[in-house]
Write a protein that binds this DNA or RNA. Structure first.
Lengths: 336, 336
DNA sequence: CTGAAAGCGCTTACAG
DNA sequence: CTGAAAGCGCTTACAG
């Protein structure tokens, strides 16, 4: 039996529900928008008319007068990097949950140096009420430009330059301290670390937090770039320079994984001979053998908060910039 | 120096550029929209006025008359599953590339049985011109409902029930055949497989393609559910029942990884003793030790095509349903 | 509490 | 090729 081909139904307008309810368009509009000063009998007449006609407000018409798009953008760093981003899912889950609850559309965009102007232009077109900027580059001028033009914006990390902008932040030092405490509680004597790039705030803070907590003036470390390869290289240097090491903190799971493969190749058992702690609790942490003990940022909660902060900023453009600090947790698995 | 607080600039309207150019609003509108029948001198006068005033069309006003939102939805399966989805990044990259090129917003939504009606309602609100439905559940009534109401929709896989709907598809049999051919070319004599859930089309087709190509009537297999754990369990059964096995095809990378850990625990070297081929080329393929040889679907290209098909369908509502079939490739790494 | 009217900023037949 | 006018479907002062 062929599918019956229904004609696209003519959409019903407010005009028609007003007529059906025997009231003016203005009154009908008021009950649609939940204005409380409407007579109860009239309200229910209108509500019945809405139900009977199957009325759905035309959002374009509404936007035209309210000047609200009921949509915000989630701007991700580089399209090319999307496939490898371990936090994408958690990020989307957190933001979409709160935008969804508020009936606000979440529109996804990516931005790099080449597409920045397009993105900026799009933001000012009026189809978006605000924007969540995820990890903009350190010298990206967009955050400042948006703040100055008073376009609602929130950032997923501390701004590179001092800027009065709403953002969330994970306490990197506290996270690294967790790793240090754990390794110490394991009675490890010769602890080393593979750091992230030290010119980045994150890389620097993780080393600082780890070192401060360990309070070991002789802490041996080598700088990595968060990649698996740099973890392997770093681990190789470290075992050779310090054959007696019995614990390593890698500032990313990927580096921890690189370290693990070197350790295995050299016959050092993990965690028996060497305890390994990573950072991120990304997908690879579970994929490691043994599964990685690692520091986890509450990415999803941070993303949800980001959305909440943005929505609040849109409704209260003159409220001062806010900042929410999140504390990481240690996920105990088998590598340490 | 404090940031100067600029007043939000009053947006300039088409009325003003028309006045600045000394033409009617209608004419100004025509040049904005690239209508070709405008006198050249007038066109450039208007263009200058646009540049001078910094005019940007109000999308709500435009949408109100064109009845186009210039936005499409990407509807992902379950919000809860987002963090573990290995294809999310590739999917977003493919779709956002083509929607971005067309100036169409990509709005992200998730849907499960509980939120289906909300999503459906949102689609019919008029803020969306079409929808990409990613792997809807086998008994999800939404695809059919959308097709019947003539709402532009495309699917990321073959529809569960026969339905005239535009979709893309990866040739699962051909993908599995690639794995079989490769293992055979390696001169493996005792080949086994861990399948996906056989009640799903994907699980079934991968086994069928593998078995048909191998043409081994005695092919040993055990059914898994695509998870790491089921891969480990399956591998255990298989080695015990067939101690002489020298190759295994797992219908997912996760299962392959589970198999790998069992093999290692039992002292079987990979690939020397046992060759292992996975399916998906997800992030774990690279995280495996050794890195996995695996079958890869061109997810990003499929996603881009999905967006293209949807945009075409929106512009040509009466064109017949289309389908694009994609052929997987084999990614050679070290496990086989 | 309610309605008539203005207005949001465009596009598009329709005349000319 | 161009313009005057109608119309898209709402919301919101303003009177009453």
């Amino acid at each position: 039996m062929p599918t019956p081909r229904r004609a696209p139904l003519k959409r019903v307008t407010l005009e028609e529900v007003a007529r059906a309810a025997g009231v003016s368009r203005a009154t009908a509009s008021r009950v649609v928008n939940g204005v409380t000063t409407v007579d109860e009998a009239i309200r229910s007449a209108v509500q019945r008319a809405i139900a009977d006609t199957g009325y759905v407000p035309n959002p374009a018409a509404r936007s035209l007068v309210t000047r609200r798009a009921e949509a915000v953008a989630l701007v991700l760093p580089e399209r090319a990097r999307l496939p490898g981003d371990p936090f994408l899912g958690r990020l989307l889950r957190g933001t979409s949950r709160v935008t969804g609850d508020h009936g606000v559309h979440l529109v996804l965009m990516t931005m790099d140096a080449n597409t920045r102007d397009q993105v900026a232009a799009d933001l000012h077109r009026g189809r978006l009420d605000g924007v969540i900027l995820v990890h903009p580059g350190e010298r990206d001028p967009l955050p400042r430009r948006l703040v100055e033009s008073r376009f609602p914006v929130v950032l997923s990390a501390r701004p590179a330059e001092p800027l009065a902008v709403t953002h969330v932040e994970a306490d990197q030092r506290a996270g690294a301290a967790l790793a240090a405490d754990h390794l110490r509680s394991l009675r490890r004597r010769r602890i080393v670390t593979i750091t992230g790039p030290l010119h980045t705030a994150v890389g620097h803070d993780r080393l600082a937090g780890f070192r401060d907590t360990l309070a070991d003036p002789d802490l041996a470390w080598v700088e990595g770039d968060f990649s698996r390869e740099s973890g392997a290289v770093g681990m190789t240097h470290l075992v050779e320079a310090h054959p007696d090491l019995d614990a390593v903190f890698a500032a990313s799971d990927l580096m921890a994984q690189g370290a693990l493969s070197v350790l295995r190749a050299r016959g050092r058992a993990v965690p028996a001979d060497v305890a390994v702690v990573g950072f991120d609790d990304s997908g690879v942490a579970l994929a490691c053998d043994p599964p990685l003990t690692t520091v986890r940022e509450p990415v999803e909660e941070m993303a949800a908060e980001l959305a909440r902060l943005l929505l609040h900023h849109i409704d209260h453009p003159d409220s001062p910039p806010a900042r929410t600090l999140f504390t990481p947790t240690l996920v105990h698995r088998h590598s340490a």
